[in-house]
């Protein structure tokens, strides 16, 4: 019963999105703005972690939307809109990172902090952590994981972010990256293995 209601809501959301897409394809800018509002946070979250720099991420997000608007008339709806947008974002980020590759750059998540050392615009997850020690520990762990993500190769990083952070399915990732599902799985295993290694070091008190 519950799942059937859930499915109805999902179908409703999908058809509402289909209507939005159709309107945006007919150059209805208000409809496109709604699409942007629907996807801005998700895409920004992904892009920031992919390029490791909030300022670049802002520019890239803008570019993703401009490209999407441009390409929307050719969007045939075979892929879902989210898959298509993640694909544009991934391609732009890869291109951007290639251009920056010559510059020596250590991507550090501390760059996402304001002058006062506080993280800017972070939204803490809904889980309540009443114990301050637990909170400190989880915050440290987050930093370990964020840093480990930033050290992954782009191939591994994209898959890990899409699966474990953005919650896309294997199939969706295969469509975003145009790679076989088997490759998605093996990259995910490799990526997780590397993150896990850093977490293990941290838990054992070794310097990372």
């Amino acid at each position: 019963m519950v799942s059937s209601i859930g499915r109805h809501i999902e179908v409703d959301a999908l058809s509402a999105e289909a209507v939005l897409i159709e309107r945006a394809q007919a150059r209805d800018e208000a409809a496109f703005e709604q699409i942007m509002n629907l996807y801005a946070d998700r895409l920004y979250n992904y892009i920031v972690r992919l390029v490791g720099n909030p300022t670049d991420a802002e520019d890239l997000l803008q570019e993703v939307f401009l490209r999407a608007y441009q390409g929307l008339p050719n969007f045939d709806g075979r892929a879902s809109l989210s898959t298509w947008l993640y694909r544009i974002a991934t391609n732009l980020c890869i291109d951007h990172q290639r251009k920056r590759a010559r510059r020596v750059q250590t991507v550090s998540y501390h760059a996402a902090e304001d002058e006062d050392g506080e993280p800017s615009e972070w939204e803490l997850p809904d889980t309540q952590t009443p114990d301050p020690l637990d909170a400190a520990l989880s915050r440290e762990l987050q930093q370990v994981v964020e840093q480990a993500i930033s050290m992954l190769s782009p191939k591994l990083r994209t898959v890990l972010l899409l699966y474990d952070v953005e919650n896309l399915s294997y199939e969706e990732i295969a469509r975003v990256l145009k790679i076989p599902i088997g490759t998605v799985k093996s990259r995910l295993n490799h990526a997780r293995g590397q993150i896990q290694k850093q977490v293990d070091k941290y838990l054992r008190g070794e310097s990372i």
């Binding site: 703005e33 979250n45 972070w122 997850p125 987050q142 993150i195 293990d200 838990l203």
Partner: peptide
């Protein structure tokens, strides 16, 4: 380790896209 890694990955803080991005795209 796997459990800790999994939980941390799935609870990473989510960032909000700055509102002006959508406005800038609209202007452009």
């Amino acid at each position: 380790t796997v459990l800790t890694t999994y939980r941390t990955l799935h609870a990473l803080p989510r960032r909000r896209a700055p509102e002006h991005v959508v406005q800038q795209v609209r202007t452009r």
